[in-house]
Every structure is written in C-alpha cells, then in structure tokens.
C-alpha cells in the first residue's frame, strides 16, 4: 500500500473513533436533558407556592423588609454567574460569559463596583485567567444542582448583602444564567435577585408548566403566624434559594441541550470527514493502480521494442 493511502486510512480510523465518542456524548446529554427538565418541573410546585406567599405578604403595604427596600445609593453590586463545569457544549459558555460581561460593563458605567460569584469551572477559569477577583466560586454542581447547593449559594449571597459596604458588603445582587426555553432555544439572561422584585409564578418555573400569576389585589386578607415580619423573615431567604435553584436547574438543562446540539453537529462533521477521506483514499488507490498498469504496459512495450530490434 502506498504512503498516501496509508495516511488517509489512518485519518479515517482516528475520525471514526472520535465519532464514536461524539455520538456517545450526544446520547448521554440527550438523556440528561430529560432528567434536568423533570427536576426543574418537580421543583416548581414549591417555587410557585413560595412566589404566591411572598407576593401575598409583600402586597401588605405596611410591611417593610430590608430585602425588599431599594437602597438609596448602590456602590457595590454582586454578580452571580452560573456557568458549566465542562466544555464540549458549543457556544454555551461563551454566550453566557458575553452576557455577564455586558452586565458588568453596564454596572461599571453606572459607577458601581462589581463583586463576582461564579458557579462552574468554566466561569471560574474565565475570570481567574483574566486576573479578576472572584469573591466565591462553586464547582462540580452545574450538572446536578440540589436544593442544598442553592441554599449554600443563597446563604453566601445573603451574607454579603447583609454586610456593610465597608466590609465588602453589596447593595444589590444580579444573577446571570441561561434560561431554558426549549431543547433548541436557550437564552443567556440576567436578572436582579436583590432587592427583591417578585416575579410572576410562570417565570419562576422557567420550563415547567404553571398557573398564571394572579393579580396581587386578589389575595385574601391573611392572618400571619406569628407576625407578618416573622413570616417575611422566614420566607424571603427561602424565596431567594428557590430562585437560585430554579436558575441552576434551568442552566443545567440548557447546558445539556447545548452539549447535545454541539455533539450532534460534531458527529455529522465526523461523518462528512470520513466520507471525504474515503473518497480521497479511493482516488489514491486508483491512481496507484493506474500507475502500476502504466509501468507494466510501458515495461512490456519497451521489452517488445528491444526484442524486435534484435
């Protein structure tokens, strides 16, 4: 076999073994999307119940809470970037980080200092590589976020929100994540987490079906046990944890969906490459045979000519 043919054969072999890996990753991601969506849906009754309760308490106009009041001036904002731990997901993390950069630029242009919190190795690497300080980072949870993870993050954020500005406290908290709309549509977006703007129940579910939010005026007059303030005190941190959890779950579904799409494209590209290399290998083989034939015919002719000359 000629050198050229051998080169093509080797390329075909290595591309087909890569193709197997891509195909396997695509299938794994596809099965995980379903799981992530199911988790997101099973968390939505709790999120809906919390949203409704928080809206009910905040519609009581006489209740004032530190988490819901707008600060007079904002000097420092926290940004929680929820990214993936692993790559191989196409433009997923690039799009997310671009959105985060946009938000950070916007905050800076308003004269605010930015404190970074990150979830996922990719986001962490992006900022450490650029020598940007990260307040706190969590890794290894982006694919299977649990309520405990959300609580841990929520606690850390609340702690810095409650701290004074002089002691690295922040006055507002933003969250950047990828919203899962469908398996082919997931958009990076940012939202303000604190001070609280109570969002509609169907937005909280993000991906899960839910009943439409009702007009706050429609809430009955609740009796609070033990008091409206105590109820709000216990509800708000939970509401924040639940918002973080739903963002984490939505991000993990988006991550898997992006990975599936990216791996699907990679598999197709590998198929194309294999086809191209097979054609090239065939051409090379054919050319070799043609050359051998020409040599034999040429040789025979030369022999015949030389014997005729004798």
């Amino acid at each position: 076999m000629g050198a050229q043919q051998r080169v093509f054969k080797q390329k075909i072999r290595s591309t087909s073994s890569l193709r197997k890996i891509f195909k396997a990753m695509e299938l794994i991601a596809a099965s995980r999307i379903q799981k992530a969506i199911a988790r997101s849906q099973s968390a939505s009754p709790y999120a809906n119940a919390l949203t409704r309760a928080v809206s009910a308490v905040s519609s009581e106009s006489n209740v004032d809470h530190v988490l819901t009041t707008e600060p007079e001036s904002v000097s420092r904002s926290a940004v929680l970037v929820i990214g993936p731990d692993r790559g191989f997901a196409g433009a997923y993390s690039a799009n997310l980080l671009r959105e985060a950069e946009e938000l950070i630029r916007l905050l800076r242009s308003e004269g605010k200092d930015v404190a970074l919190f990150t979830v996922g190795g990719k986001a962490e690497n992006y900022y450490t590589f650029r020598d940007r300080a990260i307040e706190q980072s969590w890794t290894g949870i982006s694919e299977m976020p649990t309520p405990e993870n959300a609580r841990e993050i929520g606690e850390a954020l609340l702690q810095s929100f409650n701290a004074e500005s002089a002691e690295n406290g922040v006055d507002e908290i933003y969250i950047v994540f990828t919203k899962f709309v469908s398996s082919v549509k997931h958009d990076p977006e940012y939202r303000r987490l604190l001070p609280l703007e109570v969002v509609d129940a169907d937005e909280v579910a993000s991906g899960g079906a839910s009943e439409p939010a009702k007009d706050p005026a429609a809430f009955p007059l609740y009796e609070f046990e033990p008091s409206a303030e105590a109820v709000l005190d216990s509800l708000l941190p939970r509401y924040i944890d639940s918002r973080i959890l739903s963002a984490l779950l939505s991000a993990s579904a988006s991550e898997q969906a992006s990975r599936q799409a990216a791996m699907h494209t990679a598999t197709e590209n590998a198929d194309d490459l294999i086809k191209t290399y097979t054609r090239l290998a065939n051409t090379a083989r054919q050319a070799e045979i043609t050359q051998e034939l020409t040599e034999i015919v040429g040789g025979a002719d030369a022999l015949a000519a030389s014997s005729a000359g004798d």
């Binding site: 308490v57 609740y222 033990p226």
Partner: peptide
C-alpha cells in the same frame, strides 16, 4: 406545628400564612 405552637385547620378556616 408553627413557631407559636400547634395550629389546627378545618374546612372554612380563615386565610393564614404561618411559619
């Protein structure tokens, strides 16, 4: 069980939000 003690709820109870 709420932070103030047990609360019993029967049909027709007034609206309550409790910890």
């Amino acid at each position: 069980r709420t932070s103030d003690g047990e609360i019993g709820i029967l049909p027709g109870h007034e609206p309550v939000l409790g910890v």
